[in-house]
């Protein structure tokens, strides 16, 4: 099995404060990994650094994606290579129609990979298929990106992008935050439909609940900027029963 993502002894600072203190994580093709941990353990920092968000200083270690140095790439190059971050809080972009955004993004990625750009009819056909399966109404696609969307709609829009862009690594940052159980089920079904032997997922969550819907192969517990325990899916249930306190001791 090929390692898709290799995070090696990663140390990251934000404004002089070290958040990740030497984090190591390997995700293979086809696997779904869950990263759990209390608030402030560095889960979101890890997802941001993988996606290339500015404001984080990597002081040591490396991140390899398909064997290439991810930290050397601009965020848009990472996206074109197949890294996708589903945001915890997807931004609203007034004045940019969702459809325009989706087409521009997809074609930018294809162009960067040297592939032909989608024609408008082909693109529309693809969007209709995918949005239908995610229960996303067509008029939502005409509105500004995420403008006036409910929490559930915003997350479904993230899953829609995942389905359209067909990344090989999906990082889902707190996908369950702000979702009721029905909204969570729809989003999770969308994610599960995208599971494939060539695609890996990293599901970041505070609660075990999400993992009832997206069942992981591997569960990691993060605390204070490191992975402190890894195990199978049963580890998540253990955590639900015992809490994070056992890992919080210095």
């Amino acid at each position: 099995m090929m390692a898709l993502l290799e995070v090696k002894d990663l140390k990251v600072r934000v404004e002089e404060r070290e958040i990740l203190h030497g984090l190591t994580l390997t995700v293979n093709e086809g696997e779904v990994h869950a990263i759990m941990g209390p608030n402030g353990s560095g889960k979101s920092t890890l997802s941001h650094v993988i996606a290339g968000k500015p404001g984080y200083e990597v002081t040591d270690g490396q991140i390899l994606f398909k064997g290439e140095d991810l930290l050397e790439m601009a965020p848009e190059e990472r996206a074109a290579k197949g890294v996708f971050l589903a945001f915890q809080y997807p931004v609203e972009i007034p004045g940019v129609a969702t459809m325009t955004f989706l087409r521009t993004a997809l074609n930018a990625q294809r162009k960067a990979r040297g592939e032909s750009e989608y024609s408008t009819p082909d693109f529309l056909k693809k969007v209709r298929e995918v949005s239908k399966s995610l229960n996303i109404p067509q008029d939502m696609l005409k509105r500004g990106v995420n403008v006036g969307f409910s929490g559930g709609e915003k997350k479904r829009n993230e899953v829609l992008q995942m389905a359209l862009f067909e990344p090989s690594l999906c990082i889902l940052d707190e996908m369950d935050s702000g979702l009721d159980i029905d909204a969570l089920r729809i989003a999770a079904d969308g994610v599960n439909a995208l599971r494939s032997p060539k695609r890996a997922m990293v599901v970041i969550t505070h609660y075990q609940r999400l993992l009832n819907y997206i069942v992981p192969d591997v569960v990691h517990v993060m605390s204070r900027g490191r992975v402190v325990k890894s195990g199978g899916k049963e580890l998540a249930l253990e955590l639900e029963a015992s809490g994070y306190a056992q890992f919080e001791a210095a």
Binding site: G52, E76, V91, V96, Q109, A112
Partner: peptide, 29 residues
């Protein structure tokens, strides 16, 4: 807005293209 720019770049838009999209939205109002 850097947050919006990053979102667009994380979706594959190069800097100038991401800027152009946001500028169009800005004047669009």
């Amino acid at each position: 807005d850097d947050t919006l720019l990053f979102y667009l770049k994380a979706r594959g838009l190069p800097e100038k293209q991401a800027q152009a999209l946001l500028i169009q939205a800005f004047v669009g109002e």
